[in-house]
Amino acid sequence: MKLRMKFKKGRPVMFISHLDMIRTFERSFRRADLPLAFTQGFNPRPRISFTPALSVGITSSSEYMDVEFEETISPDDAVARLNAVLPEGIQIIKAGTADEKIPLSTVNCATYIVKTALEMENPSELEKGINNLLNRKEIIIEKSTKSGVKSVNIAPFIYNMKLLSNTNGTADICMEVSIGQQGSVSPKLIILELEKVLAKKLEIVSIHREEIFYRNENNKILPL
């Protein structure tokens, strides 16, 4: 049977890579004595699939995985047993059946909260900068790829951006951006562009992924 699980990746584990995360889960399932299903063949792998990898250094309260078990397990039981043996900083938030839910591979949008530090006398300046960036049709950046440097327009990948708070020299900026195969842009890059617009230095204090989901013209569908 297959279960979908939503989990968080907190500060104590923010520097571990996607591969580290996979290994950590495989071992945690064994510690929890939950019977993972494995692939056939000479080098069996556990049947777990994840949403797109989170960059190292970013925390998240919204990661998902589909896990196949050899036996029927109640979602609540799985959550309780797993949480008892997970390392500090990783926690299962909820679990449920994956039936009739969107496939994890279709997830194409994420919201991030970026905490930045800046010296700015007039907060409305920041807000203006954000809106300026959001309303542009074209934001061309240079991306280095295997076949050399390429120019990419990241404007279509930025769906939304707003200033959540701006006090005591720190500003929280919320951004909704495209992720996955059809194109993605990292919050770090957006902040770089914002610096250009403001002609000011914005120091990133932390980046947190709030939610990931499937988004089309008029809909937002959560994986669980």
Binding site: P12, F15, D20, V56, V85, L86, P87, E88
Partner: peptide
């Protein structure tokens, strides 16, 4: 500092057990 170094997990500690 850790975001600036290779393999920051080397210095984090906090592993299970």
């Amino acid at each position: 500092l850790l975001p600036q170094v290779s393999k920051p997990t080397r210095y984090m500690g906090n592993e299970y057990n």
